[in-house]
Design a protein around this nucleic acid. Structure first.
Length: 420
RNA sequence: GUGGAUAUAGUUCAGUUGGUUAGAGCGCCAGAUUGUGGCUCUGGAGGUCGUGGGUUCGAGUCCCACUAUCCACCCCA
């Protein structure tokens, strides 16, 4: 029955593992605060037109991976397939470009792509993204790259490699496209079908083709860095200089072009090289025309996106432990109805004072209550029966050591405060 | 969109050439210890064998379709 099955390509995060997400999200918020980025939340769906314009009609996303539908008023709506276009839309809509620049934003958002499912590739996945609007400087590129690198390192990832490339501005891209087309023309028949199609529509992407025959052809193709204009060249040199200063190791890979149309000048990927394979864990670049393209001012921007599911998988594959949260501080075990009422009051009062504590809600035996306390990771247990209530005294048991001590019940809060 | 593998308890998996009542580990519940957890031992609950059709005296097992999962390709995060 479909009733009890999540749709293809979606995943539930169960209580057992939600702590992983809390941890990652916490680290994201921490580093973004330190780097001076502020959160922006945009809607789950946008007008289809925004995605078409923003992401680009020739991309795979737009051509075959969009979740698009008409709402009741007949508007074409699309679940956002990435975070940049919506962020740019919101930036323009709310006039953030009239503020002092730069504008530095981040987001954690679900994104949707209708594609075949594989490990770390879902139809709904979650992305951490960073966008820096307003600065044309290579220092901005370096800053977002350094943020991503620092973030991944802090989580414990090693063997990180940054691949960068310069794909120029619209002007130099035109020249390069021509040169590339000229070169490929002679080998057109040998290209794979997909690339034949790309030849007219999106020549650059042929560089990215994984077909062996295409790769062989591409190997001797003209290199884009030879065709970029003075300005773009300087920008790229500036970026390399900044990365050197920050001690971030990088490699220039003339074949990365990224899947999105809006990139200009810098594109980059962060690869984690494991024993088995290299995995792109983060990708981004500069998009100097997108804001204008969507109807805003002529303003440069740079950013990246990072898939959180894939990140968690990578951490686990490396055996990197995500810190587990602590259990409750106190479990109040009870014997009898009188004790239940008393425990109810005590627990409610302690919780109000900020002490995380639990008590029995299942009418379990004392033994079962102890088991439960152990299971939920209670640091202390107190057993309440008629005796304790009448004498206002009880034994506070430390679960890890098994040691017990006599305490006065009314001092419980004071004692716990000292133990936190 | 293409190709391959798989689908049995909450979970990970056994299940012989098709043959009575479908099993195990872990988890859950209880007892051993009637007011004290972890370790151990004992017992218990839990399954329309993914869904629908077909072959057969008889299907978890064979055939078909659908759905989902995993892997690879395409592409990307």
């Amino acid at each position: 029955m479909m009733l009890t099955q999540a749709p293809k390509g979606t995943k539930d995060v169960l209580p057992k593992e939600s702590y992983k997400w809390h941890y990652i999200e916490g680290e994201i918020r921490k580093i973004c605060f330190e780097f001076g980025y502020h959160e922006m939340r945009t809607p789950t769906f946008e007008h289809t037109e925004l995605i078409l314009r923003g992401v680009g009609e020739t991309t795979d996303i737009v051509q075959k991976e969009m979740y698009t539908f008409n709402d009741k008023a007949g508007r074409s709506i699309t679940l956002k397939p990435e975070g940049t276009a919506p962020a740019v839309r919101a930036f323009i809509e709310h006039g953030l470009h009239f503020d002092t620049q730069p504008t530095k934003l981040y987001y954690i958002t679900p994104v949707f792509r209708y594609e075949n499912v594989q490990a770390g590739r879902l139809r709904e996945h979650h992305q951490f993204g960073v966008e820096l609007f307003g600065s044309p400087s290579p220092s901005a590129d370096a800053e977002v790259i350094s943020l991503a690198m620092t973030f991944l390192k802090r989580l414990g990832l090693d063997n990180l490699k940054v691949n960068i490339n310069n794909i120029g501005c619209q002007e130099c891209r035109k020249n390069y496209n021509e040169a590339l087309k000229n070169y490929l023309k002679d080998n057109y028949d040998k290209l794979c079908d997909v690339c034949k199609d790309r030849f007219e529509r999106n020549t650059l992407r042929i560089l990215d083709c994984k077909e062996k025959t295409c790769q062989a052809i591409v190997k001797d193709a003209p290199v884009i860095t030879d065709y970029v204009c003075e300005n773009c060249k300087n920008h790229f040199e500036g970026l390399k200089h900044e990365l050197d200063i920050l001690n971030i190791p990088y490699e220039v890979d003339p074949h990365i072009v990224r899947g999105l149309d809006y990139y200009t000048q810098t594109v980059f990927e962060i690869i984690t090289s494991s024993i088995k394979e290299n995995l792109t864990i983060c990708g981004g670049g500069r998009y100097n025309n997108l804001i204008k393209e969507i109807g805003g001012p002529d303003m440069p921007a740079v950013g990246f996106g990072l898939g959180i599911e894939r990140l968690i998988l990578t951490l686990e594959a490396r055996g990197i432990e995500i810190p587990k949260p602590k259990g409750v501080l106190l479990y109040v075990a009870t014997i009898g109805d009188k004790a239940k009422d008393e425990a109810s009051k005590i627990v409610f009062d302690l919780r109000n004072k900020g002490i995380p504590c639990e008590r029995d809600l299942m009418n379990k035996s004392l033994k079962a209550q102890m088991k439960y306390a152990n299971k939920i990771g209670a640091k202390y247990v107190i057993v309440l029966g008629d005796e304790e209530i009448d004498s206002n005294k009880a034994r506070l048991k430390e679960m890890e050591t098994g040691k017990e001590e006599d305490i006065v019940l009314s001092d419980l809060y004071k004692i716990l405060l000292q133990r936190v």
